[in-house]
Nucleic acid binder design. Structure first.
Length: 265
DNA sequence: ATGGCATCTAACAGATGA
């Protein structure tokens, strides 16, 4: 059983790419980020025809998350406020969080803020958002032991997760961003991808500019983080670079987690 | 190297992304 994550940079611009990828890769669950469309205009029918249930939280122009699932999800919610209450509502105007129960697994689909540049207002927002994410997940952990958080984290946690040695002011690799993410992970999450390899050179995002992809000047910023029961069940985590090679690609490419079947089935 | 490119919009230039 496979759970994939893919920042598609506009679901409408990537409609054919995503449907064709799903035909080749009929994953049980696909978490999408940067759908960039209001729910009313989301192109539902191509994915329903492929047998998916659709859960969508979109907004105009920016952000937007969605989950496609072969089987229905339960207890689907959007944003932080269903768990954290009104103090978190200010964060929920940007559609970045979509959570649902897939059997006994809680799937949290995230589009972490980009942060613009170190020291900017958006950078402060990103750090604040990650602190709220920590509180959100801490509460979820009171309810369920099986949590898979996945999505576009806009953070490369270690230097081997990007093509160069980052400077402290490099967005997505700055010390404060990494610390904020580590504080989230310290709740009890582990990187599924790093269960299988310590090697560098594996990336999920390449800048459109300056020939970054053919030069493999990329970053690994799309992740699956798992609680211990799920981490134990992980049998593969792979990055599929094929869609990045096609015409009109997203700047991100899919990452696929494979879990062993639960003993319950 | 603040470029390079791609997406969106009561668009046709400017904001945003990472």
């Amino acid at each position: 059983m496979k759970i994939a994550t893919w920042n598609v940079n506009s679901i409408r611009s990537r409609l054919n790419l995503v449907t064709e990828w799903l035909q080749e890769n009929p994953v049980e669950v696909l978490c999408l980020q940067e759908t960039k469309v209001v729910d009313a205009d989301f192109p539902r029918s191509p994915f329903k025809q492929l047998g998916y249930h659709l859960y969508i939280s979109g907004q105009k122009s920016y952000n937007g998350v969605a989950i496609f699932s072969k089987s229905p999800l339960q207890d689907v919610s959007t944003g932080f406020s269903p768990v954290l209450g009104t103090p978190a509502t200010e964060f929920d105007s940007q559609k970045r969080v979509l959570t649902g129960m897939w059997g006994d697994i809680c799937i949290v689909n995230l589009y972490v803020p980009n942060g613009a540049s170190v020291g900017s207002d958006k950078y402060a927002y990103k750090l604040d958002w990650l602190a709220h994410l920590r509180d959100y997940l801490k509460s979820l952990l009171d309810k369920t032991a099986n949590i898979c958080i996945c999505g576009d984290f806009n953070i490369a946690l270690e230097d081997k997760d990007l093509h160069k040695i980052p400077k402290p002011k490099d967005i997505m690799a700055s010390p404060a961003e990494r610390d904020a993410l580590r504080q989230v992970l310290e709740l009890g999450f582990a990187d599924a991808f790093r269960k299988f390899t310590d090697a560098d050179g594996h990336y999920s995002w390449w800048d459109y500019r300056a020939g970054s992809f053919p030069r493999n000047k990329g970053w690994r910023i799309d992740h699956h983080y798992l609680t211990p029961p799920l981490y134990d069940r992980a049998i593969a985590c792979t990055i599929d670079v094929a869609p990045r090679k096609l015409p009109k690609p997203s700047d991100h490419t899919p990452v696929i987690l494979e879990l062993a079947n639960d003993s319950v089935g």
